[in-house]
C-alpha cells in the first residue's frame, strides 16, 4: 500500500542520464516544466513529447515504473479534465442534460492533461535517476547565490537531505508499529471516521516518539563527528561539469529556442502553412 508511491524514488541503472551532473538534471527539469507552460499549440506539445521521449529513453528506467507514479495523481488528473471539459465557455460541441462540452473546453482539457502527464513524467525522470543526496547537492550549488542575501543555503540543503533520507525509515517504522498494534488486536480499517481517527493514536504516538528519538541520535552522531554547518566544509565528491553535461545544456538550449519559436508560433508559420490546428 505504502510501497506504491514511486514518485521520488531512485531507480538504479547504468545510463547517461544517471551519470549526468545533478545540476544539469535539475536545470533541465525546471526549464522543461516552464517550457510546458510556454507552448500552447499542438506542434509545440509534439516537440515537448519528442524531448521527453528522448530524455526518458536515455534514462533506461522502465516505462511501467514511470507510469506507476501516475496512479497517485490519477484523481487530480481526472478532476482537471472534468472541470475544464464542462466549465469552459465557448462554442458548444456536445450537450446533454445540463452539461455542455465546448470546443474550447475539449482543447483546454486535453492540453492540461497532456501538460500534467508530461510534468510528472519529466520530473520523475530526475528523481528516478538521481539519488536524493545528489539532488540536494545540486540544489545547494544552484542556490549558492542566495547565500549573499543571508539565506542559510547549506542548512536548507542538509535539512532536505535528512528529511528525504528519513522517509523510508519512517515508513518502515510505521509498518512495524502498525503490525505490533494489530498483534494487540488493533483495527485500522473498520468503523466510522471518528473511530478510525481515534484508532490512529496508538500508531502516531509511538511514531512521533521514535522520530524524535532518531532525530536526537542523529544530532548526537553528527556532533560527535564535529559537524558545524557549511562554513569551510569541503566535498568528498565535488560537482564538476563534463563534456556530456555541456552537450546536455546545448540540447536544452536548442529545445528551448524551438519550443518558443514553434510553441508560440512566433513567425506565424502555422498560419502560413495554412491553418494547422492551433
Amino acid at each position: 500500500m505504502i510501497k506504491d508511491i514511486t514518485l521520488g524514488q531512485y531507480y538504479p541503472a547504468e545510463s547517461v542520464i544517471h551519470r549526468l551532473d545533478p545540476r544539469v538534471k535539475l536545470v533541465v527539469t525546471l526549464l522543461f516544466i516552464i517550457s510546458l507552460f510556454v507552448v500552447d499549440n499542438i506542434p509545440g506539445y509534439a516537440l515537448a513529447f519528442l524531448f521527453l521521449a528522448f530524455w526518458c529513453g536515455l534514462s533506461r528506467v522502465p516505462l511501467r515504473f514511470m507510469l506507476r507514479g501516475m496512479r497517485t495523481i490519477f484523481f487530480l488528473l481526472l478532476m482537471t479534465v472534468v472541470f475544464n471539459l464542462f466549465l469552459t465557455p465557448g462554442t458548444p460541441l456536445v450537450s446533454f442534460w445540463k452539461l455542455t462540452i465546448t470546443r474550447e473546453g475539449l482543447r483546454i482539457a486535453l492540453l492540461m492533461a497532456v501538460r500534467l502527464v508530461f510534468l510528472i513524467v519529466g520530473s520523475s525522470v530526475m528523481t528516478f535517476t538521481t539519488t536524493p543526496n545528489h539532488l540536494t547537492d545540486a540544489l545547494e550549488a544552484l542556490m549558492r547565490p542566495l547565500k549573499r542575501l543571508g539565506a542559510p543555503v547549506h542548512e536548507i540543503a542538509m535539512m532536505m537531505s535528512i528529511a528525504l533520507r528519513f522517509i523510508p525509515i519512517l515508513m518502515e517504522e510505521t509498518d512495524k508499529i502498525m503490525k505490533a498494534q494489530m498483534a494487540r488486536g488493533a483495527d485500522f480499517e473498520s468503523g466510522g471516521l471518528i473511530r478510525r481517527a481515534r484508532s490512529l493514536v496508538p500508531l502516531l504516538v509511538p511514531l512521533f516518539i521514535s522520530a524524535f528519538r532518531r532525530a536526537n541520535d542523529l544530532a548526537l552522531a553528527m556532533e560527535a563527528r564535529c559537524y558545524h554547518g557549511g562554513e569551510g566544509r569541503t566535498r568528498m565528491i565535488p560537482l564538476t561539469y563534463h563534456a556530456r553535461d555541456r552537450i546536455a545544456y546545448g540540447l536544452l538550449l536548442l529545445y528551448l529556442i524551438l519550443a518558443v519559436v514553434i510553441g508560440r508560433d512566433i513567425f506565424g508559420l502555422a498560419a502560413a502553412i495554412g491553418g494547422l490546428p492551433v
Binding site: 512495524k176 508499529i177 503490525k179 505490533a180 498494534q181 494489530m182 498483534a183 494487540r184 488486536g185 493514536v201 496508538p202 504516538v205 509511538p206 516518539i209 521514535s210
Partner: peptide, 17 residues
Amino acid sequence: LRARVGLVFQYPEHQLF
C-alpha cells in the same frame, strides 16, 4: 487468532503509547 497467538515484536517498548 491474534489473541490466541501473542506476538511480542522486537523492542516491544516502542509500541507503548
